[in-house]
Write a protein that binds this DNA or RNA. Sequence first.
DNA 1: TTGAGGATTCTC
DNA 2: AGAATCCTCAAA
Length: 213
Amino acid sequence: MDFVSKGLQVLPRGFYRRHPALVAPELLNKLLLRSDGRCARIVEVEAYAGSEDPAAHSFRGQTARNATMFGPPGHLYVYFTYGMHWGSNAVCGEVGEGVGVLMRAAEPLHNLELMYAARRAAKRLSDLASGPGKLSQAFGLNRDFDGADLVQGDRGIVIVSDGVPPPDNPTVGPRVGITRAVDTPWRWSVPANPCVSKAPSRRRDSQIAASRP
DNA sequence: TTGAGGATTCTC
DNA sequence: AGAATCCTCAAA
């Protein structure tokens, strides 16, 4: 992983090998990094918990589409939806569980030019990656990246820490864009960050103490 | 083979 | 508020 600068620590496999609702809030403030220099701080995430979670792609078992979710933790699960958008997740838990964390929004830090080029609709920094489809587009993540190992830096994509801890009191609320288990509060974001997604009005977010087992 | 629907975004 | 746009999966 020659493209990971000194001072940055790649998140180890064990980080992901836990319940997604534990991993998700700890993913806040970590950095998504591509070998071409694109880098952004993760500011909004959602947990999806497989067979125990009716809103998860993996709820009804493994299919061709969600196969990556059932593989080893620490890999990227990229899905296609609405005929035009990609969504990017970090696979969590153990092999066979089908659980993961959707990266919903990030604050761009480096190589913004490449991100603006990838997202012609974006006028400002807060348009670049403030949603799961936007984040994936800004980073050029698509089917080619499905299954990439985020720990090995496979295909030039990795998640690292620069030492900034997750927020002590992340904003918590219900997940967005789903039709089942709509009240489960499994979306976390960095409070007051301008790059979080603009979610529908039914959200009932609140500030609660982060659970830190 | 068919059709309904989707972990969304953009524009009107 | 509505359109865009096409892949996926279950059912027939």
